[in-house]
Amino acid sequence: MIPRTVFEPEHDLFRESVRRFLETEAVPYHDQWEEDGQVDRDLWRKAGAQGFLSPTVSEEYGGVGADYRYNAIVNEEVSRLGLNGIGWTLHSDIAVPYIEHYGSPETKQKYLPGCVSGDVVTAIAMTEPGTGSDLQSIKTTAVADGDHYIINGSKTFITNGQHADLVVVVAKTDPDAGAFGVSLILVETDSPGFEKGKNLKKLGMKAQDTSELFFNDVRVPKQNLLGKEGEGFIYLMQELPQERLSIGVIATAAAESMIEQTIDYVKDRNAFGKPVAAFQNTQFKLAELSTETAAARCFLDRCLELHLDKKLDTTGASQIKLLTSELQNKVADECLQLHGGYGYMWEYPIARAFADSRVQRIYGGTSEIMKLIIARDLLAD
């Protein structure tokens, strides 16, 4: 295996602590969480106490001011163990950074310490029943009323929707201004008029709470505006590279884990009087998948380095998201096939990994959207 150079020795120690925590506090309970449709809320507080939530938040606001590599380690270990129902990536890598980067000092002081401790779980409400990747077409509105906004609308497919205490809401403050009328507003989920819908049942990610959210004349103080009014779409575009990089981190770790599981399985499983690993087809398939995943890992780690230097652009992030999410699904399919009929049984990790993989090509921007972004850059004058 090609050694990784993006991490330092202190990162290895952090990885070991994350792995031990997950093996003790999450792995034994994950089956039940899949039945429940959400993880135990106390897991968040336990993770916060260990420093696993939002490690990039500065010490001033209760964090440790670490760089994104610590987020990546948490994501890799969660993915490696197949614990895809834990919504930490959405919280630490996607929602909390909006508060970090665009919140006022007062807003940061109010919310960030709880985000780090696990007392505050966050979500981001972008997708609506009638819109997916087309964020300019959202219908949720935030109308100014004195020192408040009045928010009306609905959102769907919201990760952490049931557990969330605080939601970054994407809303139109000027419905006639297109992308320039989009703003980001923080809404506390105990606000009058806010309602959490049912916990949605999904193909995969079964332990992850995913909800509909409804806003009926929800009054929110104007100081809950993140950044400037009308610049929300710009902020979304600025933060998307990290979101897509995080998806790539998860995808690559999942692919590696599935290959390892399959190697162990084919060594032990016999067919026609010999181990499945003895067949040339098995050997060639695993060689192919391992090589492609190793190549993806090298590209991913380079993107990690660029991101640490604030040089990962939209095209690069789109490329790593497209490459790794598609590869994750290919690996899931091929590895399930090598498991034979047992691969289709839910009790086998490969079956769960297969189901969990599919959404990676959809959220964070579909593969088709990634191709459009990449092509526009390639063909630009």
Rank of each mutant, 00 (worst) to 15 (best):
L372W: 04
M345S: 10
K202V: 12
D301Q: 14
V18G: 12
Q136S: 09
L53F: 00
A49Q: 13
A254Y: 00
D134Q: 14
A375Y: 10
V116M: 01
H339D: 05
F157K: 11
H307R: 07
R19I: 05
C115I: 05
H91L: 03
D174G: 07
R20F: 13
A177P: 01
T156P: 06
F215E: 08
D313A: 09
T131L: 01
P221K: 05
V266N: 02
E35M: 04
G316A: 05
C303A: 12
R45G: 00
A123H: 07
L83E: 03
E326F: 02
V96Q: 02
L184K: 08
L186C: 12
S318T: 08
A47S: 08
T140S: 15
K110S: 09
L338V: 00
P113R: 06
S137T: 11
F21T: 01
A351R: 10
Y98H: 15
M126V: 15
V116E: 01
A296W: 05
K46F: 03
T282V: 02
E347S: 14
H11D: 14
E239C: 06
Y98V: 09
R45I: 07
A251V: 05
N224S: 10
L53W: 01
V331L: 01
I320F: 08
V249S: 01
I86G: 02
L200H: 03
L213M: 15
K198D: 11
H91F: 08
V64K: 11
A164D: 12
L304Y: 14
I158C: 04
G181F: 06
K155M: 13
D165G: 13
R69M: 10
R376T: 10
T89F: 06
T159R: 07
F180G: 14
H101D: 15
E77S: 02
E326C: 07
H30Q: 02
A95R: 09
F157V: 11
G103Q: 07
Q208F: 02
G341D: 11
K330V: 07
I150S: 04
Q238E: 12
S58T: 15
S92F: 08
A380W: 12
I99T: 08
T140H: 10
Y149Q: 13
S79E: 00
